[in-house]
């Protein structure tokens, strides 16, 4: 799909908003938490497991509409995409850097307590 019109219809935006708010931490990834289909997705799963964070995993390989819509919704071109407290937090590199600096723990804890 090239420079076609927006994949993000008002209905889809509504659905995505509900989806990212369905849990405190939501990970849109390639594959599932038990079977990641990509090294970058796997990295984020391992980080969340390491922090013992309960999270919802959404396999974007099984839902092309969510996959295309989310790129626009987040203004982020790639996956995985991590949402915390209903807000886009980042992809693999940002999550990894935040994990190493301790910032990720803080953001997660804040979201869990809110």
């Amino acid at each position: 799909c090239s420079a076609s019109s927006s994949a993000l219809t008002p209905q889809l935006r509504d659905t995505l908003e509900k989806l990212v708010n369905s849990e405190k931490v939501v990970l849109f990834m390639k594959g599932t938490r038990d079977f990641p289909m990509c090294g970058f997705s796997n990295t984020v799963v391992q980080i969340l497991k390491n922090l013992n964070v309960p999270f919802e995993d959404v396999n974007i390989l099984e839902n092309e509409m969510v996959r295309q819509g989310l790129k626009e919704y987040s203004s982020w071109p790639t996956f995985p995409q991590l949402y915390i407290g209903g807000e886009f937090f980042g992809g693999c590199d940002i999550t990894l850097e935040a994990f190493q600096s301790g910032e990720l723990q803080e953001v997660v804890e804040r979201a869990m307590c809110s």
Binding site: P77, T78, G90, I94, A98
Partner: peptide
Amino acid sequence: RLLERHRMVNAALE
């Protein structure tokens, strides 16, 4: 912020 900086890189390579 880091997220903003990464977004700039993504945008530059749109």
